[in-house]
């Protein structure tokens, strides 16, 4: 399985033709304590860059964007009652949604883990 990152700090873990999406450690730390997560409806068709979810800290709301185009197949309902999981395990149990990947070539525009780390260091 490969993991890709966006400049907006989403990650997508690719398993065949589907992907799991969440926000990076960097993003979770920058947001601070997450108090609410709004997840999309299952079956929603998203283009790359569409607003897929909303994550709110005490202070502010931020959007989570679709890293690639595809359809939402599953959402992490556990986050509704335990949004703090996003801080505790952003790249594990704190995942947001699973989706189909319409066009695998869209992944090429994303960063791999090494490139993403360099990107964050430069911020």
């Amino acid at each position: 399985m490969s993991v890709y990152f966006t400049e907006d700090h989403e990650w997508i873990k690719v398993d065949g033709e589907t992907g799991t999406v969440g926000i990076s450690e960097y993003a979770a730390k920058a947001l601070g304590d997450v108090v609410y997560v709004e997840l999309p409806e299952i079956g929603r068709d998203m283009s790359k860059g569409d607003e897929a979810a909303v994550v709110e800290s005490v202070k502010a709301a931020s959007e989570v964007y679709a890293p690639v185009a595809g359809e939402v197949t599953e959402v992490n309902e556990a986050l509704e009652d335990a949004p703090e999981t996003v801080n505790a395990a952003p790249t594990g149990d704190g995942w947001f949604l699973k989706m189909t990947i319409n066009d695998a070539s869209e992944l090429e525009s994303l960063m791999d883990e090494t490139k993403y780390k360099e990107y964050c260091d430069g911020l």
């Binding site: 601070g32 304590d33 108090v35 800290s57 005490v58 202070k59």
Partner: peptide, 12 residues
């Protein structure tokens, strides 16, 4: 300072 390492929630 908007927050310290403790974070907004714990500071509150």
């Amino acid at each position: 300072p908007v927050q310290y390492p403790l974070g907004v929630l714990k500071e509150h």
